[in-house]
């Protein structure tokens, strides 16, 4: 048996899982989004669900909100993570402990983080009560709305809290592999500390940084639970909106939910493609 065939056969179980569960699910979803649901008597495929999605104002508001959540939390997380990795690659007293603490919340589920944000940042949360107790605000209701708010601050905070160590660990490993000699070359050629970061280290860590931030973007764009717990009810994030349609008492709303899910997947793919193209051009020139 040739080596190639052996490798292919060993990959078959994993390919079956991906093929059946992912592409199978996608196929069923696609059929339903075209109004093909024989269970409830819909047997003539059409584009009415997509038309309904694209003519709904709430869909556009939800899209903008979801994009804002995904983009802002990805950018903030990446910037903080790169800064943290730059510090953590240096030798200092207690580095091992700081490194451990930095990575600690990788093990904590998103849901637990969301509840933490709720307890800390909501208007009935700890910070609001402390602010009121110390007389910084008259009552807890004067505390700025950081949860269930239209700007999704709470959601973004939760994502940043959770994703900084994720991107940071990848970028730090990348930096340690690269070492400091490239920057030394740049410095001796006349680059300032900032220039050697901007023109040398950043392009070198870029592939790792990009992969990590794309994963974060894709996840935050399509994730349901955090916007469901910490988000405002209108406009809701796209996955929340899709889920609402899916669980609508009227089964006829299901094709619309599926159309929305397909659109979310497509939009996510298009935006990742644009992000990759744009950032590659900007960073590597």
């Amino acid at each position: 048996m040739s080596e190639r065939l052996k490798i292919f056969l060993m990959l078959v179980p994993a390919l079956l899982v991906i093929g059946l569960l992912f592409f199978g699910g996608l196929f069923i979803g696609l059929m339903r989004s075209f109004n093909y649901m024989p269970v409830i008597g819909l047997t003539d495929p059409d584009l009415s669900a997509y038309l309904s999605v694209f003519t709904d104002r709430e869909f556009y508001l939800s899209f903008l909100l979801t994009f804002h959540i995904a983009f802002t939390s990805t950018v903030i997380s990446t910037v903080i993570a790169v800064g943290a990795a730059l510090l953590l690659r240096r030798h200092f007293l207690g580095r091992a402990i700081v490194n451990f603490l930095f990575q600690l919340n990788l093990t904590i589920p998103h849901l637990v983080g969301a509840i933490g944000i709720l307890y800390l940042f909501s208007q009935s949360g700890s910070f609001a009560r402390l602010a009121a107790h110390w007389g910084m605000i008259a009552s807890t209701s004067d505390f700025p709305a950081l949860v269930f708010d239209p700007y999704a601050v709470g959601i973004i905070l939760q994502y940043v809290w959770k994703e900084v160590p994720f991107i940071g660990v990848i970028v730090l490993a990348n930096m340690q592999t690269i070492g400091e000699d490239y920057e030394s070359v740049a410095r001796s050629l006349g680059a300032t500390r900032w220039q050697s970061f901007r023109y040398v280290l950043l392009p070198l860590i870029f592939p790792g940084m990009l992969s990590a931030s794309v994963m974060v973007f894709a996840f935050t764009f399509g994730a349901y639970e955090i916007p469901a717990i910490l988000g405002a009810s209108f406009p809701a994030a796209l996955p929340v909106l899709a889920y609402r349609k899916y669980t609508d008492v009227d089964l006829a709303a299901r094709p619309e939910a599926m159309a929305m899910a397909i659109v979310i997947a497509l939009l996510s793919a298009v935006m990742i493609y644009l992000y990759l193209r744009y950032s590659r051009k900007r960073i590597r020139g």
């Binding site: 030394s184 070359v185 410095r187 001796s188 050629l189 006349g190 680059a191 300032t192």
Partner: peptide, 8 residues
């Protein structure tokens, strides 16, 4: 290093 005029 960038002001020393030394290249390595």
């Amino acid at each position: 290093p960038e002001h020393r005029g030394v290249v390595m």
